Lab assay of single mutants.
Amino acid sequence: LPLEERVTHFRDMLLERGVSAFSTWEKELHKIVFDPRYLLLNSEERKQIFEQFVKTR
């Protein structure tokens, strides 16, 4: 999958899993780590997309 598509899937997962915009990566990790979409991005990309996600929520 192209990166753009993987990012979209990852963001959808964050929304569906009820990730809080007022929380930290560490506190929200347990909600998403077992979702197959979690593995679409490498660890650096995951954290970066998470940070963007919480800023725009």
Rank of each mutant, 00 (worst) to 15 (best):
V19G: 03
V7Y: 12
V7L: 12
K55D: 06
L40G: 09
K27F: 14
I49E: 09
R11D: 01
R6E: 00
D35S: 00
Q52G: 07
E5T: 05
L29V: 11
E45T: 06
T56G: 09
R37F: 05
V7I: 14
M13E: 05
T24Q: 06
P2A: 15
V54H: 04
R11S: 03
R11E: 07
E4R: 01
E44C: 11
L40E: 07
M13T: 02
V33E: 12
V7S: 09
F10Q: 01
K31Q: 02
V33M: 10
W25M: 11
L1W: 03
T24A: 05
L3V: 15
V7T: 09
R17V: 07
E26H: 15
E28Q: 04
L41F: 05
G18K: 15
D35T: 01
N42A: 05
L14A: 03
G18Q: 07
K31G: 04
E51F: 10
A21Y: 07
R17F: 08
E16V: 04
F53H: 07
R46C: 04
I49C: 10
H30Y: 09
K27S: 03
S43E: 15
E45V: 01
Q52L: 07
R6C: 02
D35H: 09
Q48M: 13
E5H: 13
E45M: 12
L14V: 00
E26L: 05
E51D: 12
L29E: 14
E51H: 12
R6S: 01
E44W: 11
F10E: 00
K27G: 09
W25I: 08
F50V: 01
K27D: 14
E28S: 04
I32R: 06
S23C: 15
Y38G: 02
F50T: 00
F34W: 09
R17K: 15
E26D: 11
N42M: 03
P36V: 03
Y38H: 08
F34S: 14
V54I: 11
A21L: 05
Y38V: 02
F53W: 12
R37P: 02
E44K: 14
T8I: 08
T8S: 11
N42L: 06
F22W: 14
K27H: 04
T56R: 07
W25V: 03
P36F: 07
V33P: 12
N42K: 12
K55I: 10
Q48W: 12
E26M: 12
R17A: 07
I32E: 04
P2L: 11
Q52F: 00
S20T: 08
I32T: 01
Y38T: 03
I49Y: 14
S20R: 00
T8A: 13
F22P: 07
I32Q: 04
T56S: 13
Q52N: 06
F34C: 12
T56I: 12
E28F: 02
P2I: 14
S20G: 10
S43T: 11
F34E: 15
Q48P: 05
R37T: 14
Q48F: 07
E28R: 05
E45L: 12
V33T: 08
H30C: 05
K31T: 02
K55M: 13
N42I: 03
K27C: 13
